[in-house]
Each structure stands twice: as structure tokens, then as C-alpha cells.
Amino acid sequence: MIELQEAELVSRCRNGDDRAFAELVSCYQKPVYNLALRITRSGALAEEVTQSTFVKVYERFGSFKTGLSLFSWIYRIAMNEAINEYRRGKRRSSLDETRIMSAAEPSFELAEAIQEALMQLKPDDRALIVLRHFQNLGYREIAVIMDRSESRIKSQLFRARSSLKIILARLGVTNEE
């Protein structure tokens, strides 16, 4: 979405235009859902996170400063929602194991192993991997979303990938086959 269109959309949303908000949901629901799915590993939780993210976006439009990236702002809310929901889900997991385990089905075995390895990372590292490698965001955008410096993002990403390699090796994945 180009900057002008985004500014116009924000302005319409702020004026209470429901259709504008529907456009915004339509535009961002997929990346938000995927972000949540990779962090929570649960289709049901990802739906909840996506929904609560947009409710919060709606509630907090007043705090959104024009000049910032709407995309980064929404992602920051989504990431925090997903991490919080994951933590709540983890606490509930002893009572409701099936809910957490009934994640969106990975389409092939390697993907399943990667997702399993991701789940063994700290939520913060997992979010970072997802933002960089699944959502293909630049370091600057990630730095804004995670409220850290670019250099810190880069070094954390490096460490997260190293941890992922060790976990994948434990799961028997040592190459791309």
C-alpha cells in the first residue's frame, strides 16, 4: 500500500468510516494471521489474535501518529497480542492440550519440523524470525516494531538462527531434504 493511500485510509478510519476499516482489515489480515499462526502454532489462537489485534487497532487509532508506518504499528500490536496469547495458551495447555496442538497443518514434513523448532525458541526470538523470514520485513521495520536498534535486531537474529539450527539438528533436520 503506497504512502498516500495509507494516509487516506488512516484519515477515513479516524473519521469513523467503517468501510475504510474493512479495507484495512482486508489488507492486513493475512500477514497478521500468519504472524500469529507462527508465534502461537494454533489456528484457533491465530484467529483470536488477529481479531483482538484489529479491535485494538480500532480502539487506538487516536494514538497512531501519522508519519509512522501503519503497517509497523499494526504489526507491533499483533506481535504483542500473539506473544501474550501464546503465553496464556501455554499456561492453559496442561488443561487443554488438544487446542494448542491442533495447529494449522504444515503442508509438509520439513515445515512441521521447522515449526516445531520455532516453538522451542523464546517467543521473542520466534517473533523476530517470523518477522524477518516469513514476513520478509527489513531490519529497520523490525527495529520499529520491536522497539530496538537495528544492530541489536541483527545480532539477536543471528543468535536465534543459531539456536534454531541446534534445535533442528536435535529433531533430525540437518539439511534441506
Binding site: 467503517d18 476499516f21 474493512a22 482489515v25 482486508s26 489480515q29 493475512k30 494471521y33 500468519n34 499462526l37 507462527r38 489456528g43 491465530a46 484467529e47 488477529t50 481479531q51 484489529f54 479491535v55 494449522a104 504444515p106 503442508s107 520439513l110 515445515a111 521447522i114 515449526q115 524470525i129 523470514h133 516469513f134 533442528l168 533436520v173 534441506e176
Partner: peptide, 20 residues
């Protein structure tokens, strides 16, 4: 490279309506 192989999921069709 492994991470790049991860597929992107489509959100459920009902999700947008549910959000609105």
C-alpha cells in the same frame, strides 16, 4: 533457506467478517 520454504497460510474465510 529452510525458513524460506515455509508456506504462507490463508486465513479462514470467515475471519474478516468475524473481525468486523
Amino acid at each position: 533457506r529452510l525458513l524460506e520454504k515455509m508456506p504462507e497460510e490463508e486465513p479462514p474465510a470467515h475471519l474478516e467478517g468475524q473481525i468486523m
